[in-house]
Design a protein around this nucleic acid. Structure first.
Lengths: 160, 160
DNA sequence: CCCATTCAGATGACGCTGTCAAGTAAGGTT
DNA sequence: AACCTTACTTGACAGCGTCATCTGAATGGG
């Protein structure tokens, strides 16, 4: 199943992918899954890295998510497209979620990891979205993406 | 400028709107602006309401944003679509931003309002997006939208 | 070495959608 | 009554998602 038919879509006729994928949506879902997985790989590699303290690791993980949005906005949108509710994609997504959870648990402890993990991932997703749509750059609040991520991490360090 | 041509789009020929809008994108931008404005109205009404303490007001404001996503997902997507980077839409968006800033300033004080305002709005946006794409409901973290918003507000109350 | 099977891709068609140029019907103005 | 404006329809074009059909090349058995 040469998924390369996707990239090769330049130079090949319009209907060619339909031998490999039943739908355009299926094709895009596969792309999304690939993105989820490569991001999960990235975070997984981070988890074992002793070069950073737990807070810094988590920060890198959040920035990795945002980097996907910056570098490949279309792929990023696919990851969170409503068609990503399909079970196949949800499974790929939960790999990344678990990696995140592990990083978060190192800071806030197991019992609170889920709550804080969901908050951090949602917030990072929101920051990425705000930047993508241009609502961070121009407007009133003079804050950058990196600053916001730092605030997030700092916000969960000491207190319960 | 009967913008009603939009809703009336059922029962009217395909090309009819092009007498009123130069583009489909312009039409959608106008829709987005309307959504921004009505949300800003809602939050503005909240600002003067003495029935809630500042924290509760802010919570309601964030939930109002998320409610748009829940009730009218397409409109919500328009608000943050990349084509919302147009100056016309940015102006409507900044009305809501300023309302938010006022609410946030009541809690963290003027000097920090921008930083925290950006963080809160981004996070609420992210929470809405995660819910829309189904990444909150099914998966690992057993947390609801309301819970996350509460955590956000609680997270900025005492500490600097 | 030849033939049969298989598989990737091309081609051409269908319907739908965004867009526009040209036409037309209703209303108000003088 | 003749005129102009405004809102809409009609018909056309291009692009895209999708499919049924065909071609062409690679593979493997005899």
């Amino acid at each position: 199943m040469t998924l390369r038919a996707v990239g090769a879509s330049a130079g090949v006729s319009r209907g060619a992918p339909y031998g490999h994928f039943t739908n355009k949506e299926h094709l895009l879902t596969e792309l999304a899954i690939g993105t989820w997985n490569s991001l999960a790989d990235e975070v997984e590699a981070l988890r074992g890295d002793p070069g950073f303290e737990p807070g810094a690791r988590l920060e890198r993980a959040l920035l990795a998510l945002i980097d996907v949005a910056r570098r490949t906005p279309h792929r990023y949108a696919l990851m969170f497209s409503t068609s990503a509710g399909t079970p196949v994609a949800a499974e790929a997504a939960s790999r990344l979620e678990n990696e995140f959870l592990a990083l978060v648990a190192d800071i806030v402890g197991e019992p609170d990891a889920r709550r804080y993990g969901a908050l951090l991932m949602s917030s990072a997703h929101g920051i990425a979205g705000m930047e993508l749509s241009g609502h961070l750059a121009k407007d009133g609040w003079h804050v950058g993406v990196e600053q916001l991520v730092t605030m997030l991490i700092d916000g969960i360090r000491p207190g319960a």
